[in-house]
Structures are given as structure tokens and as C-alpha cells.
Amino acid sequence: MILMTELDQARQEINRINQQLVKLLEQRFTAVTKVNNYKVAHQLPILDQQREQAILNKVTAETSDPAKAPFIAAIFKDIMKQSRQYEQALRKED
């Protein structure tokens, strides 16, 4: 009988969360495609700094543990950066 260590259990939990995150990120990129289509149709730029700052403010405010807030905000900054790069790639396809 193999006993799972606390480390193994924590890693399994991370793996489950990662699977959920991948699905959520795929959904987010589907929404980014729709946003990009609207921006192209209305000749809007990819970057909307006010919108991104509002998202960061909201994410920070919604974080229950203030010690984690800057790290979560950093992740969202990267998600938004990758989303902008995805929009640029979509525009190159057209």
C-alpha cells in the first residue's frame, strides 16, 4: 500500500486546479476573440488601459487575503498581456 504524503496530496490538488484553470482560460480567450471582433469592427485599439486598471483594482479588492493580492494582480496583468498578444495574432490572420 502506497501512502500519499502531504506533498503528493497538495500537488494533486494543484493539478486539479490547473485543469480547471485551463478550461477557464480557454473560455476567456473565446471571449477575447469576441471582444477583438468588436474592436476591429469599430476601429478600436487593442489596449484599453482604463479597462485593464479597473480589472486590476477589482481583482485586488476581491482577494480575501491581502498578502496574496499583489501576486494575483501580477497573474492578471500577465493574462491581459497574453490576451493583447492573442488579439494581435488574430488581427494578423485577417
Rank of each mutant, 00 (worst) to 15 (best):
E52L: 09
L44D: 08
H42N: 15
F29N: 00
Q53V: 01
Q27N: 06
L25V: 00
E52H: 13
E26Q: 13
E52T: 09
T33N: 10
Q43R: 11
L47M: 04
T33M: 08
V32T: 10
L47A: 08
A41T: 06
L44I: 10
L47E: 08
Q43M: 07
P45E: 13
V35K: 09
K34C: 07
L24E: 10
L47Q: 04
I46Q: 01
K39D: 11
L24C: 06
P45V: 12
E52M: 13
Q50F: 09
V32Y: 06
N37E: 15
L44Y: 09
V40E: 05
H42T: 15
Q53E: 11
A31G: 04
K34T: 08
K39T: 09
E52Y: 10
L25N: 04
I46A: 04
T33V: 05
N36Q: 06
V32W: 02
F29S: 03
Q27P: 00
E26F: 09
Q27H: 01
A31I: 03
E26S: 12
F29C: 01
P45G: 14
A41W: 05
K39R: 15
R28E: 12
R28V: 13
Q50T: 09
K39S: 07
A41C: 07
R28D: 11
N37W: 11
L47F: 06
Q49F: 10
T33R: 14
R28K: 13
Y38G: 04
R51M: 04
R51D: 03
L24G: 05
V35R: 13
T30R: 09
L24Y: 08
T30W: 02
N36H: 08
E26K: 12
L24I: 01
K34S: 11
A54M: 09
L47G: 03
Q43S: 09
F29T: 00
N36V: 00
L44R: 15
L47N: 03
Q53M: 07
E52P: 03
L24P: 00
E52G: 10
Q50V: 06
E52A: 14
L25C: 01
E52R: 15
V35F: 08
D48A: 12
R51K: 07
R28L: 15
L24H: 06
Y38L: 10
P45Y: 09
P45N: 14
T33E: 07
A41G: 11
V40Y: 07
L44G: 02
Q50I: 07
